[in-house]
Amino acid sequence: MADALIVVALLLVAASATAAVAQRDPARQALVLSFMGVLLAALFTVLQAPDVGLSQLAVGSALTPLLIMLSVRKVRRRGRARKEPE
């Protein structure tokens, strides 16, 4: 019965990781990835590793999505600038 929490967290992480891979658009992938980062931190907490969970929270909830979204934005802008002169 005490394993129910671990099972819930593991199932959610597995489902969200699969969903992140299944998305086609990088911006939407970043959204699912940020969701997965928060859930991964919850899983680490349930497994009694709150120190790992803290760093996962810091990296997964804000930093990784920010990096991905900034690069998506830059790539889109470059594509637009290359199309315009033609």
Partner: peptide, 22 residues
């Protein structure tokens, strides 16, 4: 373990604002 909730309460809205901006 309350530290985790504190950090999430601080960083979660920051992540949402990143998406709202970009």
């Amino acid at each position: 373990y309350v530290d985790l909730a504190l950090l999430l309460a601080l960083l979660g809205p920051v992540g949402t604002l990143v998406f709202a901006r970009l």
